[in-house]
């Protein structure tokens, strides 16, 4: 579980995060949504420990990040998995090499044990015949799956995803969303996803936080987002005609 308490972050005169307080539970897919420039990425980087908040606390399963020593922070980082927007695969390594990298770096497992684990996670993300391929030789959806495999290979407690389905077709995007949700539940991971994708919000948003101008404007579930009267949320989520109609139908059905 991650608890965030009154987090503030500024860059020079720009106050990006203005007192965010929330919590992310284990085994749930938590989504952070908001317009570009609302502070989502900075918030995610604060959760990852890449940025340190000027004010406020972030607590990982009872451990306050600001109170940890450098080595304890490093150990904590090894409990985190991250799926980047652009996948961030090491392009000089094969798919197998990418997934094996954290094991090779941080464990004392034998080559055979590491190979078994890599085969297992690649199979888990439905990538069976891509072991020896380089990132440049696989599709965007496959890259995301390799990134997920790399993120979960060390059995992380926390999984962070920055727009995991950006640039993917709707079908592949749903597959990636479902895969992240399945993995979250299966391994009881605390997952935080930054997204713009409203399909993801509706499909896997077990907890949704809406950021606006650095403030937490709203929080709730994908069921509650249909009912909310918060104007900023409805303007953002239902900005497309399709979603406006879906919401209208939902309200009519409810009445």
């Amino acid at each position: 579980m991650i608890e965030v308490e009154n987090v503030h972050k500024s860059f020079g005169d720009t106050h990006v995060l203005k007192g965010i307080t929330t919590s992310f539970e284990d085994g749930k897919t938590n989504l952070v949504i908001g317009q570009s420039g609302s502070g989502k990425t900075v918030f995610l980087k604060c959760l990852l420990g890449l940025f340190e908040p000027e004010e406020g606390q972030i607590c990982y399963n009872g451990q306050f990040y600001s109170e940890l020593s450098t080595s304890e922070r490093r150990d904590l980082r090894q409990e985190m998995g991250m799926v980047f927007q652009g996948s961030a695969l090491f392009d000089s390594m094969t798919v197998e090499g990418n997934v094996m990298f954290p094991l090779d770096m941080f464990t004392k497992q034998s080559k055979a044990e590491m190979q078994d684990r890599v085969d297992f996670v690649l199979e888990r993300v439905n990538l069976i015949d891509a072991h020896k391929k380089f990132p440049s030789e696989i599709s965007g959806g496959m890259k995301k799956r390799v990134a997920i495999a790399r993120a979960i290979v060390m059995n992380p407690k926390y999984l962070f995803c920055d727009e995991p389905n950006s640039g993917l077709d709707p079908k592949t995007a749903i597959l990636i969303d479902n895969l992240i949700q399945e993995i979250t539940r299966e391994y009881n991971i605390t997952t935080v996803i930054n997204t713009h994708d409203m399909n993801s919000v509706m499909e896997i948003g077990e907890k949704i936080i809406f950021l606006k101008d650095g403030f937490k404007e709203w929080e709730g579930t994908n069921k509650e987002i249909f009912k909310t009267d918060n104007e900023a949320v409805t303007n953002f989520v239902y900005s497309s005609e399709l979603f406006k109609k879906v919401r209208q139908m939902y309200i009519e059905e409810r009445n």
Binding site: L50, R74, R77, F84, G86, A88, L89, F90
Partner: peptide
């Protein structure tokens, strides 16, 4: 630029 360095940092490397 392809965030590979960020990936290394997050892994604790």
């Amino acid at each position: 630029v392809t965030e590979q360095i960020d990936a290394l940092e997050i892994m604790g490397v």
